[in-house]
């Protein structure tokens, strides 16, 4: 579906052929009511979902990206919740839109999409004794579906928390036409690169960004890939720069922490 509102002469003729005028509006003017509402609704949804990206890029660049993205990737879902699902991939192929902020923009999108996923993803039954009846090298442990593991080049997590202070929950309304809303972007300085590992997760119905150690991140990634626990640990011990004794202590600490956070579940 081509977005409405790009009315060239041909589409004007088509619209006039299908749509009646009335005593106040031409066919094109009548369709433009829908066109404006379409763009307000979708752009508004992107502002709601990506306040961090808005802070990174500023309002002008953000608006340009959102409009170009929506023109290339119109919604393919019944819910606006999924509207930004292809933004990371799209911007990766259209880097010119973010200029020299492309890396931090891509990191921020990854974080913000993980935030959306964490909000309403399923929560499986926590790992229980019954899942550990046959511990051994083939034991597999699952990670809760609401957890995303991110390897980022910039510390965008803190910025997102600041940018989203005025963020509101997403909600679809019934049959209401969307009107334009005023938006304010958080003014931020340039972020310095810093590789961070982050788990975006949900606890007590709130979303948290938890920074992870590199080894911790790698083990969790392997669990997510459903690799046996024994193999994941062996690989980590083999490849880690941390002395084994220290790593062993860390492992105990990490597993205890993951269990406490409710991250572990059966497969």
């Amino acid at each position: 579906m081509a977005p409405l509102g790009r009315a060239d002469e041909v589409s004007r003729k088509i619209k006039a052929g299908y749509i009646k005028a009335n005593d106040r509006l031409t066919p094109v003017e009548r369709l433009e009511i829908y066109s404006r509402s379409y763009w307000y609704r979708l752009i508004d949804s992107m502002y709601e979902d990506f306040p961090g990206l808005l802070a990174v890029l500023g309002p002008r660049a953000f608006d340009k990206i959102v409009r170009a993205y929506l023109a290339d990737c119109p919604s393919r879902s019944f819910t606006l919740r999924n509207l930004g699902s292809r933004l990371h991939e799209w911007l990766g192929k259209n880097k010119k839109f973010a200029g020299n902020k492309i890396d931090v923009a891509l990191d921020m999108i990854a974080l913000e999409w993980a935030h959306i996923e964490a909000w309403d993803a399923a929560e499986r039954k926590l790992l229980g004794p019954e899942d550990l009846l046959e511990p051994g090298p083939d034991l597999r442990i699952g990670l809760q579906p609401h957890i995303s593991l991110l390897d980022l080049r910039y510390p965008v997590d803190d910025l997102r928390i600041r940018a989203a202070s005025a963020h509101t929950e997403h909600e679809t309304a019934s049959n209401a036409v969307t009107k334009p809303k005023k938006r304010r972007a958080l003014a931020v300085g340039r972020l310095k690169p810093q590789r961070i590992f982050v788990a975006v997760h949900r606890m007590d119905d709130s979303i948290y960004y938890r920074r992870l150690a590199h080894d911790e991140f790698r083990i969790l990634e392997m669990l997510r890939e459903r690799k046996p626990v024994g193999r994941a640990l062996a690989k980590c011990v083999k490849e880690s720069a941390t002395p084994v004794a220290e790593l062993q202590k860390n492992l105990e600490k990490w597993f205890a922490s993951w269990a406490e956070l409710g991250w572990l579940c059966g497969i």
């Binding site: 819910t79 909000w119 309403d120 993803a121 399923a122 929560e123 579906p145 609401h146 119905d205």
Partner: peptide, 15 residues
């Protein structure tokens, strides 16, 4: 309720 706001897998809305 708007059905679409609750056609999800989990989280606060369903609770």
């Amino acid at each position: 309720i708007i059905s679409e706001n609750f056609m999800i897998d989990g989280g606060r809305p369903l609770k």
